[in-house]
Design a protein around this nucleic acid. Structure first.
Lengths: 344, 344
DNA sequence: CCCGCTGTATGAAACGTTTCAAGCTGACAA
DNA sequence: TTGTCAGCTTGAAACGTTTCATACAGCGGG
C-alpha cells in the first residue's frame, strides 16, 4: 500500500496544505509545534515515504554518486569503495558501485547510465589508457574525480599514489638485500599504473648502478591470480633465473608464489618476492608477502571528499586538485633473506 | 550546458511536439523515417540526455536494483555482486551495491534509502539473525530476494547454499582421511550460515560413529583473516591438539594457516585444514586450501533473475521460490595427507 | 484607527518525462 | 461524393516533489 501514498494524501489526512507538509519534512522550524505533531502523525499513520525521483526532478540532480572501478573482486578496489562509501554516507548520499571489468565499452555504457541518472558525480578509475573517459565526463558536465590515476594539473581532480616511487621502493629494497637479477612481473602494458611501477623499478636499478638488463620483464595477461600463476611458471623457466621478482600487483604475486610452491621452489630463500597494493591477503599468505602499501580506503575517502567539494562549491571558484599519496613498503617474510654481501 | 536540455528543447529544435520526441526514443516504429532523422539530429546537436528521474516519476519505479551485502571486501560477496550485476545489466537495470558491514543499523538506514529511491527490488544478505529485515522490506512493499540465506517457504524468494551439507562434506572428508579429533573454527554464533555449517559437521562426525567431543569448537570474533589468526593461535595451544580444523570461512582458514606457519606447524602434515567459500585466494594460498565451494557468481546471478521474475510478473501469480544450491568439496593440498589406517 | 511587522499557512507553478485520447492527412472503397 | 481506415502527430494531463509569492491573523506603535 505504502507505495502509492504521496505528500498530498498526507496533507489531506492532516488537514493542511502540501506546502506545509513539505516544510515539516525539510524546514521544521517554520512550522508550529501543533501542526508539526499532526502532520508527523499523519505521515506515520499512512506510512508515507518521500519519493526521491520527484525530489531529484525538482532539484535537477540526484543524491547518488557513482563509482566505477576496474574490478570489484580486487580487494584493493573493494577497500577503496568502502572508504568512499563511508565518506558519502556522512554527506547523506547514496553510492552506486559498478564494475567496468577493464572494458572500455562497459565503461562508456555506465557513463551514459550515470548521465541519465544525473548523478551528483563520478569516482572513476578509467579503463582506457587515453583520456576518452575524461573527455566524455567533461562533455556531459558531470563532476568527477579520478581514482588511482593522476591527471595533468587543471584538467580535473584526481587522487592517486606515486606509483613511480612505489616501484623504486620495491626494487631498492631488493637491491639492498643483495639481489642483482630481478624480474618485473607486469600486466598488460597499457595501464599507466603498471608502466609507472616499472619506471620506478628501473630507476632504482640504475640508481644502484646495475645494468639495464638486470631487470627483466615477465608479461602477464591480466592483473589477477591465475595470470600470475602463468607468469610464475615462465619465470621459473628463465635462465639465468632471477633471484627476486617484483610484481605489479599482489594478485600477480600470489599467483607467482603459488607457481613457485608447486615447483618446490621456496620463497624467499630461492626467489624473493615483492607485491603491490598490500591487500589483506598479502599479509595472510602462508609466506606473508612483502608489498608496497597503498592506502586503499583513504584513496576512496579522499576522492569522495574532493567530489563533494567540487559539487558543492560553485564551479567558478573551484580549483581542481591533484592529490598524490605516498606509498609505503611493508616488509614481510617473502623478501626477508639475510642481506648478502655485494661481491660475488 | 548539456545538463539543461530537455525533451522540449529537442522538440522545438526539430519542429515537432514533445510526444513525438518521446516516441522517437521509446517507439521509433511509430514515427516516419524523415521525422526520425530530424529528431535524432536535434538530439545529437543539443547533446540531449534523457532524465531518469522524470521517467521514474512517471513510471512510479526506478530502474535500479539495490544489493546490500555483509562485507564488500569479502571476495565471496564481491563475486556474488559481480554475478548479479551482469544479470541486471542484461535487463538494462543499474545496480547499487552497498555494504551493511554486518550492522543492523546501517542496514536499516540503507533500507530506508532504497525505499525513497523506489528501487525495483533489493538483493540482501540480512545482518540480523531474526527476520526484522524481511518484515521491513515486506511492509515497504519492496520486492526482495535473500542472498546466501534461506527463508521458510512462501515468505519470500531466497537463494542459498545448503550449508548443512557443506559442513557434512568437509568433515566427512576429514574423517575419511583418518582424522578423529577435529576443530570447528566458527564465527560469532548468531549467524545462521555458521550455525548450519557446524550442524553439518556434527552430523558427519556422528555418522562416522565418533563421540561428540571429537569435534571441538574454537570461537572466532569475526569472519575475517585476523580473527582467524587469533583462533589459530588458540588452536595450537589446545591439548590434545586436533589433527584437523574445519573453518566456517576461507578468511578464517587463511588466518589459521598463517598462525600455523608462524609457529612452524605444517599443513597438512601436522594439521589438515578445510575452509569454506572457495574464494579465489583459497586456491592461491601457498598451501592451496581445501574448501567447500559456493558458486558465488551464480548465487548473485540467480538472485537477480528471481528478482526480475518477481518484479515483472504480477504479484498475484508470482510464487516465491526458495532455491538451494549444492556446495561442492574442492580438495587441495591443505588436507591431502595420505589416508591413515583407522586403527591406532 | 491605521500601519507595518512577524509568524504561519497556502496554493500554484515548475521540474522533464510518458501516455493517451483526439486530430489531421491521404488513400481507398462504396 | 461520402465514409472509413490507417498512419502519423499533437497537446494536455499526470507523476510527487519543492519553492515562492501571497494571504491571513495577531499585535504593538504611531
Amino acid at each position: 500500500m505504502t507505495g502509492r501514498v504521496g505528500i498530498k494524501d498526507v496533507a489531506r489526512q492532516a488537514g493542511v496544505s502540501v506546502g506545509t507538509v513539505s516544510n515539516v519534512i525539510n524546514n521544521p522550524a517554520l512550522v508550529t509545534e501543533e501542526t508539526l505533531i499532526r502532520v508527523r502523525a499523519a505521515i506515520e499513520q499512512l506510512g508515507y515515504v518521500r519519493s526521491e525521483s520527484a525530489r531529484q526532478l525538482r532539484a535537477g540532480q540526484s543524491r547518488i554518486v557513482a563509482m566505477l572501478v576496474l574490478d570489484l573482486a580486487n580487494p584493493f578496489f573493494a577497500e577503496a569503495a568502502k572508504g568512499a562509501e563511508r565518506a558519502l554516507r556522512e554527506a547523506d548520499l547514496g553510492v552506486m558501485v559498478c564494475n567496468s571489468a577493464g572494458s572500455a565499452s562497459e565503461e562508456s555504457e555506465y557513463l551514459a547510465l550515470f548521465a541519465e541518472h544525473r548523478v551528483r558525480g563520478v569516482l572513476v578509475t578509467p579503463a582506457d589508457a587515453g583520456s576518452r573517459t575524461v573527455e566524455t565526463l567533461r562533455s556531459q558536465g558531470l563532476p568527477f574525480v579520478l581514482v588511482d590515476r593522476a591527471l595533468p594539473a587543471g584538467e580535473g581532480c584526481s587522487v592517486s599514489v606515486d606509483d613511480v616511487l612505489g616501484g623504486t621502493l620495491a626494487v631498492r629494497h631488493l637491491v639492498d638485500r643483495g639481489h642483482r637479477h630481478i624480474a618485473f612481473v607486469g600486466g598488460p602494458g597499457d595501464l599507466p599504473q603498471v608502466r609507472d611501477r616499472f619506471t620506478g623499478a628501473r630507476d632504482a636499478a640504475r640508481e644502484a648502478g646495475l645494468p639495464d638488463d638486470a631487470l627483466v620483464t615477465v608479461e602477464a595477461e591480466r592483473l589477477d591470480v591465475s595470470a600470475g600463476c602463468d607468469a610464475g611458471a615462465r619465470l621459473l623457466g628463465m635462465s639465468p633465473r632471477p633471484s627476486a621478482a617484483f610484481c605489479a600487483n599482489d594478485l600477480l604475486a600470489l599467483g607467482v608464489l603459488q607457481a613457485l610452491f608447486a615447483a618446490g621452489v621456496r620463497a624467499p630463500e630461492d626467489i624473493a618476492l615483492v607485491g603491490y597494493d598490500d591487500i589483506e591477503f598479502a599479509a595472510a599468505a602462508a609466506v606473508p608477502l612483502t608489498s608496497v602499501r597503498q592506502p586503499a580506503a583513504r584513496i576512496g575517502r579522499t576522492a569522495a571528499e574532493l567530489l563533494l567539494a567540487e559539487s558543492h562549491g560553485d564551479p567558478a571558484t573551484h580549483t581542481h586538485q591533484r592529490i598524490v599519496l605516498q606509498p609505503e613498503l611493508v616488509v614481510r617474510t617473502s623478501s626477508r633473506t639475510p642481506a648478502r654481501p655485494h661481491a660475488l
